[in-house]
């Protein structure tokens, strides 16, 4: 047996903290040497950045460690943060909140509460049963998958903090406004009959357990293993693809059909995104390649939001609890919001 598994919790916590401190120092050291690392590799291979191939190789060996470092750091912090916001706790925070403030809070909590679309229905009904208004519940349900740490880490790594911040702000705005609109439409009677029957009687409310710091740090580690372990191949393939396009495809290749002057590009991007279902890691490197070749930022962000927030499989899951009218309203309101974001971005930038 490994000695650490029989050590006392306090000793284990000390090990974790020492490991974490070392990890932070190594992380910062590695992050500060990214360009030097890529330069050294390119010159060690006898390549020059003046050539297409050399530039593509440099791009790959600069972006890959950068994105993986950012992803690991942000996912770890998020994994620890999520232990403070279990779905039960978030529900308690939202219960009885009025519309308006409630929508704002719900969209914000959507970022830090762990969410998997496979449990969208139990969560949805659990929120309603605790007295969270329908519109507020929708704000949460829109924000949780759309504004997630993987999307933010990748956008930050590949486009910088401005684009990541804009995505965050716009994602929250769409979630808040769409939830407000759905709330105003008073669509409670468009829930399936079994849901309304269930809501008529009291449902057992689970109380959240108290976690120690050791458990929280462990949760962060587990989150990194799960998320980074799952998405790294997408990141690698995406960046390799991006590197190839970066080196070889003509600069304004995308401008003719995804440029800002093409008025129909935004709705086309939103429609195209609906049947597509992938995680943020799979879509963002493609997004980067599109932007690099002259596609407009608003159009591409609209595409990305549509792929993540308006996925056909999630609607099929929600269909079990919502009648078609409510599903259509939900999709319509969110699509309209994303459309506005796309146009505003293209017009502003």
């Amino acid at each position: 047996m490994n000695w650490s598994t029989i050590a006392k919790p306090s000793a284990q916590l000390r090990q974790w903290l020492i490991g974490l401190g070392l990890g932070i120092v190594l992380w910062l050291a590695a992050y500060s040497q990214l360009t030097a690392f890529a330069d050294a590799l390119v010159s060690a291979a006898g390549l020059s950045r003046q050539t297409h191939f050399g530039e593509a190789v440099h791009f790959f060996f600069y972006d890959t460690p950068k994105v993986l470092l950012l992803l690991t750091g942000i996912v770890f912090v998020m994994g620890v943060l999520q232990t403070f916001f279990s779905p039960g706790r978030t529900r308690a925070l939202l219960s009885g909140k009025r519309e308006g403030l409630g929508n704002l809070l719900a969209a914000g909590l959507g970022i830090v509460t762990p969410f998997c679309s496979c449990s969208a229905v139990p969560l949805f009904i659990g929120f309603l049963s605790a007295g969270v208004p329908l519109g507020v519940t929708f704000s949460f349900l829109i924000s949780a998958p759309m504004v997630n740490e993987v999307a933010l880490a990748l956008l930050f790594g590949l486009f910088g903090w401005k684009v990541a911040g804009l995505y965050l702000a716009m994602g929250l705005l769409v979630a808040i406004v769409a939830g407000l609109v759905i709330g105003k439409l008073k669509m409670e009677r468009h829930l399936e009959q079994w849901v309304r029957d269930l809501l008529a009687e009291p449902i057992e409310q689970m109380t959240a357990e108290q976690l120690s710091w050791l458990q929280r740090l462990r949760a962060g580690g587990a989150h990194v293993r799960e998320i980074v372990g799952k998405v790294w191949p997408y990141v690698l393939i995406g960046i390799a693809l991006g590197a190839g396009i970066h080196g070889y495809v003509a600069e304004d290749f995308m401008a003719s059909f995804m440029g800002r002057d093409v008025w129909w590009a935004v709705p086309a991007a939103v429609l195209l995104g609906v049947p597509m279902y992938t995680n943020a890691a799979g879509i963002i490197p493609v997004v980067e390649a599109l932007i690099g070749k002259g596609a407009a930022l608003g159009t591409v962000l609209a595409f990305m939001m549509s792929v993540i927030a308006l996925s056909a499989p999630e609607m099929i899951i929600l269909r079990k609890a919502l009648q078609p009218t409510l599903i259509a309203t939900f999709a319509g309101v969110v699509a309209l919001g994303i459309l506005c974001v796309g146009y505003v971005f293209n017009w502003l930038l």
């Binding site: 779905p87 529900r91 969410f115 449990s119 229905v121 139990p122 269930l198 449902i203």
Partner: peptide
């Protein structure tokens, strides 16, 4: 789903 929800499980 109703069975799962009756147990008070959110995720």
């Amino acid at each position: 789903l109703p069975e799962i929800i009756k147990h008070g499980v959110l995720s």
